[in-house]
Write a protein that binds this DNA or RNA. Structure first.
Length: 302
DNA sequence: CGCCAGGGCTAGC
DNA sequence: GCTAGCCATGGC
């Protein structure tokens, strides 16, 4: 019900696809809301990133989205869904704004969208994220790509695709650890092994219920509730999911509960409150909490 | 130096 | 079922 036919005009021009009629989209808010790790800002405010074995540059000028180094086929096959362009975020924000806290949070990230990312890359990225900081997560993911991915050129620079399971299982844990991923190397290897062997079929996850997907992902060593929920939200697109990390826990405790709670309690509270829009609410609250900074939450214990 | 990071595993109750 | 201690690495 939250997917409405959006009215865009789409035009291919040289190496670019130009989309007019874009609303509720801000590149910085979307790329820096902690859901993805391979987009980097250029001097002109555009972002260059690698996803689905492609490197593109995206720029927003008013209501016009310009995607460079692509074509119409890729736009409809990949980028339309990747940027969630079929969804009316205006309606989502309107509905969530009935909650006064969310109404305030949304002001800080009016242009946040939830990207539809590749499941394998999302899985590994959030394995890397555990007990780690975002700049370090980005470095490790780049190391994985340059070490084990394939080179692709764009504007005279070499970028690297994210390595597939079959490109990782041929190495051992010690080699994977050279990417500075630390103790997570064995987790990455186990994920690659289970996907490569077919024990876990990422392409069929969407056929299962959310809790079944959770159970399947958590059979991987190093994948717990938080990592599984991030995969479910950011790549499967189940929006009744509320990934609960230390930050969102502090934020919910501070803004709603007015007391401390367990992660499970926080999650159940949020999903009960936000329902099918929980994932969006989480993203707005997370960005809001991070923008408000450690001044408010920093001194609290986890 | 110690502390902690978008967690999860393990051992010990 | 619950939790404290641990985990690699790096920034402060």
């Amino acid at each position: 019900m939250w997917v409405r036919r959006m009215r865009y005009s789409v035009e291919e021009k040289g190496t670019k696809v130009i989309v007019r009629g874009i609303a509720d989209f801000n590149l910085k808010e979307t790329f820096e809301s902690g859901q993805c790790f391979r987009w980097n800002e250029e001097d002109d405010g555009s972002y260059t990133g690698v996803a689905y074995d492609r490197v593109v540059n995206v720029k927003l000028e008013g209501d016009t989205l310009i995607i460079d180094n692509t074509n119409l086929t890729d736009f409809y096959d990949i980028w339309f869904d990747y940027f969630d362009l079929g969804r009316d975020y205006g309606q989502i924000k309107e509905s969530l704004s009935k909650d006064p806290v969310l109404k305030e949070a949304i002001k800080f990230g009016q242009g946040i969208r939830i990207l539809r990312q590749d499941t394998w890359e999302t899985l590994v990225s959030f394995i890397v994220s555990q007990n780690n900081r975002i700049p370090q997560i980005k470095k490790v993911i780049e190391n994985l790509a340059t070490s084990f991915g394939n080179p692709i050129e764009y504007k005279g620079k070499i970028y690297y695709t994210f390595p597939k399971p079959e490109e990782l299982v041929m190495y051992d844990v010690e080699t994977i650890a050279k990417t500075r991923c630390g103790f997570r190397a064995k987790y990455i290897f186990d994920a690659a092994s289970k996907v490569f062997s077919g024990e876990i079929n990422l392409l069929k996850l969407h056929e299962y219920s959310t809790s079944e997907i959770r159970d399947i992902l958590m059979t991987i060593n190093g994948v717990g509730p938080k990592v599984a929920d991030c995969v479910i939200l950011y790549s499967i697109g189940r929006y009744d999911t509320f990934p609960t990390d230390v930050w969102i826990k502090r934020i919910v405790e501070h803004l709603y509960l007015k007391r401390e709670g367990t992660p499970v309690e926080i999650q159940l509270f949020a999903i009960d409150k936000f329902g099918d829009l929980s994932g969006f609410a989480q993203q707005y609250l997370f960005y809001y909490g991070r923008e408000m900074g450690k001044k408010i939450f920093g001194e609290r214990k986890k």
